[in-house]
């Protein structure tokens, strides 16, 4: 009986001293945690309008975002997406607010096909769609640029 009491006492002491202080998982780096940025998502479905031109003669050329219309006009962009023929949807993580975008398409058909299809000039003529979007916290705003 005495032995079992002694054993329990030793085991209890061992467990007591072997335990570390509890760790606060929310305060483990002395308060240096970066606060997560509050952002929303601007999702642009960049459709290339159909025309009578053969496929791959009208291509995505540019997709840029600016904070104001003036900065968009001056080319002071917040973000410029790498656009590809094979990618339709482009996403931008932005702080809540109003943003302006420009989307450009370019015609690469030969001869006077581009001007006949409504593009200014010949090869390399481009069209632009400009608009704005309101970004809300943790929400996705979806835009489809319209080319005329």
């Amino acid at each position: 009986m005495t032995r079992s009491i002694l054993f329990s006492l030793l085991a209890g002491l061992f467990l007591f001293f072997s335990c570390d202080d509890p760790v606060d998982p929310n305060n483990n780096n002395n308060g240096n945690t970066d606060t997560p940025k509050i952002v929303g998502t601007l999702e642009i479905e960049f459709r290339v309008p159909g025309s009578y031109l053969p496929p791959n003669r009208v291509l995505r050329a540019d997709l840029s975002i600016a904070k104001t219309a003036e900065e968009l006009y001056k080319g002071h962009f917040l973000d410029v997406a790498n656009v590809y023929n094979s990618k339709l949807v482009y996403q931008f993580e932005l702080a809540p607010g109003t943003y302006y975008y420009q989307a450009g398409i370019v015609c690469v058909a030969k001869g006077d096909s581009c001007s006949a299809a409504g593009f200014p000039g010949e090869v390399g003529g481009s069209k632009w769609a400009i608009g704005n979007a309101i970004i809300k916290e943790k929400e996705t705003t979806r835009i489809i640029p319209q080319f005329r």
Partner: peptide, 19 residues
């Protein structure tokens, strides 16, 4: 396929933007 020889397509290469 990419990149295409299209100078109008600007390349973005900075932190957070890969090509």
């Amino acid at each position: 396929v990419d990149p295409m020889p299209l100078p109008i397509r600007k390349i973005s290469l900075y932190e957070g933007a890969n090509y």
